[in-house]
Design a protein around this nucleic acid. Structure first.
Lengths: 245, 245
DNA sequence: CAGTGGTCTAGACCACATC
DNA sequence: ATGTGGTCTAGACCACTGG
């Protein structure tokens, strides 16, 4: 132990360390996919024991902010690598349960002013600009999900359809590597609705057909909302999977 | 340290301890809501350090099998106490987000032979008997969810409508305290369907109206399935809430 | 081999609950 | 005052990775 904490610990020491590491991650002090310093090095740096750093990193790993790999190190979590991370935010499964990766097809990108709901959900100011993306997820060539994705324009300067089309990889991987915006967690509200004519056409079904409507608000560091998304899903051959525990 | 483990630890020691504790829980060595022995006592009993027992109990707490309370002890988790545990398995929320507890109204209990799907999902044998419960969840007097709950008859001997009606409390609390069956985790598959005439009548909506169909398989100790449930939900004023992280 | 995270121990002290 | 879980430390050893 080198430096005893001056503050009598409003929070436990390991949570303070976790907070410091979180701020470093947010500041992109280490890039996604990169290793952070070893536990021993961090312990030395912060003047605490290795056990305390360990608890801090364990907490970060629980939050999916970093990934531990025995013998190698601890790495900044990324949407770009690891096939598994795709299904963390994609809960749609084929009815036989298989984890099939869909093809993402961007229909259009449009720029507009945020409506009242979006202003509230994204914590924007009245009149702020947003980008609205419409995209379809195809499974084996069949359209299954129609997403309308709303983003604060200020955070995604230069996002165009051409640029996404040129990029290979998932939407969140695109956001992370091209705009430095990392989606960390989300809240979804799910309802059943009847398909309108436009959605029915795109999803290759009939108007009035029951659809799953999934309304998502996605958060980045500091609980800041950075995406609002509505997904419409045809659940004939697919379903939304959720684990309760 | 008293007894060094004879086996060279196929699993880490703390996971072995966790397994032993789990078996004790399953055997109802301590009743739901009761305190388990203190960390120091367990460490003495198993001949390991307190830190190892601590990691084992932490893992059990992560699985929601026990609840830690500082200064008091560690308690066997129960569906009977704690309002919060209700919403662990009930994801329906009012559109304004409020956690309102519904009133559960049992329509009927019927005994029958398990069909092919149920045999598979509940790991039964062809011809085994099951109980089928139909119940409605009312929110402010309005029917919102219609559940069809299928249980292995062998585990729920003596379950009747009268007995449930006499019992105050949630369904899982009823199962736990009256039949010793504890629901630990579940998997849900969610789809949008059109209401049939029967469901529409009970849920006070029109045939063909879009409904959320939530298919749940619920597991107890040892990953054994003990409940299959289909919930139909009118999502006009309500939705299904899910957190992704 | 050295370096990393993973486990285990032993002991000190803190925070909380109860009597 | 006592007993509980919660934090923190220091050090030993294990298991995995890669040069």
């Amino acid at each position: 132990m080198a430096i005893p904490p001056a503050t009598p610990a409003f929070a436990p020491l390991y949570l303070q360390i976790k907070g410091l590491l979180e701020r470093s991650l947010e500041a992109r002090q280490w890039r996604p996919g990169e290793a952070i310093p070893s536990e021993i090095e961090l312990a030395r740096r912060y003047g605490v024991s290795q056990g305390t750093v360990r608890k801090a990193i364990d907490a970060l790993a629980d939050d999916n902010l970093v990934v531990r790999r025995q013998g190698k190190g601890t790495f900044v979590a990324t949407h770009t690598e690891e096939r598994s991370s795709l299904f963390r935010f994609l809960r749609i499964r084929r009815n036989d349960g298989a984890e099939v990766a869909p093809v993402s097809r961007l229909l259009d990108v449009r720029r507009t002013k945020a409506g009242q709901d979006i202003v509230r959900l994204l914590a924007l100011r009245q009149g702020d600009a947003v980008l609205v993306l419409r995209r379809v997820l195809d499974y084996a060539g069949e359209p299954v999900v129609l997403d309308e994705i709303t983003l604060p324009a200020a955070l995604f300067r230069g996002l165009t359809k051409a640029r996404y089309d040129a990029y290979g990889g998932s939407m969140y991987s695109f956001f992370e590597s091209e705009f430095g915006v990392r989606m960390l967690k989300a809240q979804e509200r799910i309802r059943a609705i009847a398909a309108d004519a436009a959605a029915a056409r795109i999803l290759n079904t009939e108007p009035g057909a029951p659809l799953l409507a999934v309304d998502r608000v996605t958060l980045t560091y500091g609980e800041r909302p950075v995406e609002v998304r509505r997904g419409l899903c045809v659940t004939r051959a697919f379903h939304y999977l959720n684990e309760l525990y």
